[in-house]
Amino acid sequence: MRPVALALFAGLLAGPALVPAAFAQDAADLPKQNWSFAGPFGTYDRASAQRGFQVYKEVCSACHSMKLVHYRDLSGIGFDAKQIAAIAATVEVSGGVNDDGEPFNRPGLPSDMFKSPFANDNAARAANNGALPPDQSVLLNAREGGADYIYDLLTGYADPPAGMTMGDGMNYNKYFPGHQIAMGQPLHDDQVVYSDGTKATIEQEARDVTTFLAFVANPEMEERKRLGAKAIIFLALLTGVTYAVKRRVWADVDH
């Protein structure tokens, strides 16, 4: 009975695990990348994430908002307080109303959230051919395939295969579901000029901005994995000790 019981236990644990796997069928076809933040000890490559922020700021943020992220959060990828204050100060945000009851603007502060490119969703749609550019705060978590999908999408633009009719204003993408995407190819070679001298190939830009998007979607990840390693080690030891106690307690029982 014991091996059967163990097999059942394993099966029931694995059962639910199979379900998302079944869903990820499409995602399974995505070419995989090596990410600095993958695996149980992965961390965000600071330099890559900072370059990725530059790509976001200079390219993506023209259309995509990042409403859940604050400038202060950039400290998580190694920007210091001065740099963050300078970055925040480049935008104008509403300061509420002044003492005369008139609305006024002020320079951004680290405590402000990323300024959205459009005042509201309707304005965003109107400026983008009717399509709403999704908010990028948790975009990476919101897509099957995660980082691989974002990277593949950004590098997956191509000419449509012969015979495929493209919708008005649509672009062919190898990895977008349905292959017709409203967003034009956002990244090209040398789209940005990296201050650290890294060559801005389209692959490099995609890799950097994906790392940045992974960070903004899961800013707690490094702390989480650090704490997790400690928790697992501690629990493993405690399991061992507890099992030993159980063995000793039961030593004088015939069962």
Binding site: F234, L235, L237, L238, V241, A244, V245, R248, V249
Partner: peptide
């Protein structure tokens, strides 16, 4: 004694947890 010691370690571990 050995069992009591183990139980003590386990109890302390649980308390820490």
């Amino acid at each position: 004694t050995k069992r009591d010691f183990l139980a003590l370690v386990a109890g302390a571990g649980g308390a820490v947890l």
